[in-house]
């Protein structure tokens, strides 16, 4: 982590605020702290903030504030970060039907790591994953915290269409495809819940950087029940406080 954040201009409407050059929880906490602080900032001046692994991309309105003035003001906020009590992250419980036709690569992941499929499921669902950032597609979460025991390389030939909700592993990462898309991740299961629902006016995207995901294994019957509730718009994702 840098001792002081770097403020880098990107064009005439953006400032990159960089806290370090690695991926770590400590840097993430700085990013999250400043992100939350900037939510209170005048939205006429700071238009949009994109938090990522180790930096924030701040889009400002140069007609309302100059870059130098904004940097000065954010530097003051940065100083106060150490006294900021971050709100406790939430843990979202994500139901997953592992294996079968939804997880065509579960057996491969097991063999590759000399485990049984059930052991892979236990390892994968037995921990919490930090959402470092979202990107790539709407609602796609970059997660940290996967066990080294189930690391598996990507497919050599990516699949052309992976259904939304698919849960996969790619090297040291795990994640969920929020929309149908091509991809090379090893698929081990699928969740019936929607991470991205553009028709949802209140919360089109379920998850947020800084929160956690906890997968849990469900049966085929449970998958069907949850699926039905999701379609009817009555499913409530279980959320725990850390």
């Amino acid at each position: 982590m840098y001792t002081k954040a770097k403020y880098i201009l990107a064009g005439d409407q953006y400032i990159v605020i960089e806290f370090g050059d690695t991926i770590s929880i400590d840097i993430h906490k700085k990013v999250r702290g400043l992100y939350l602080t900037l939510q209170q900032y005048d939205s006429e001046k700071v238009v949009e903030v994109i938090p990522t692994y180790r930096s924030l991309l701040v889009q400002y309105n140069p007609l309302m504030i100059s870059a130098s003035k904004l940097i000065n003001e954010i530097q003051v906020l940065e100083e106060n970060l150490k006294d900021l009590q971050l709100p406790k992250p939430k843990i979202f419980k994500i139901p997953v039907l592992y294996g079968e036709e939804f997880g065509p690569d579960l057996d491969f992941v097991a063999q590759h790591n000399r485990l049984t499929p059930q052991e892979v499921i236990d390892i994968h669902s037995g921990r919490d994953y930090l959402i470092y950032m979202l990107g790539f597609t709407p609602g796609f979460c970059y997660l940290g915290g996967m066990s080294k025991k189930i690391v598996t390389p990507r497919l050599k030939e990516p699949r052309t269409c992976i259904p939304a909700g698919s849960v996969g592993i790619a090297d040291k990462q795990t994640g969920i495809y929020p929309i149908d898309s091509p991809g090379g991740w090893r698929l081990i299961g699928r969740t019936p819940i929607k991470l991205f629902d553009p028709q949802n006016e209140v919360q089109p995207i379920l998850l947020k950087a800084g929160d956690y995901i906890r997968y849990y294994s469900i049966t085929r019957d449970e998958y069907k029940q949850i699926s039905k509730a999701v379609d009817e718009g009555i499913y409530q994702v279980e959320i725990l406080e850390e």
């Binding site: 064009g11 990159v16 991926i23 990522t52 692994y53 180790r54 930096s55 991309l57």
Partner: peptide
């Protein structure tokens, strides 16, 4: 680089 935000016109 470690993935970060992409400005318009980058």
């Amino acid at each position: 680089i470690i993935s970060d935000g992409i400005p318009l016109g980058a």
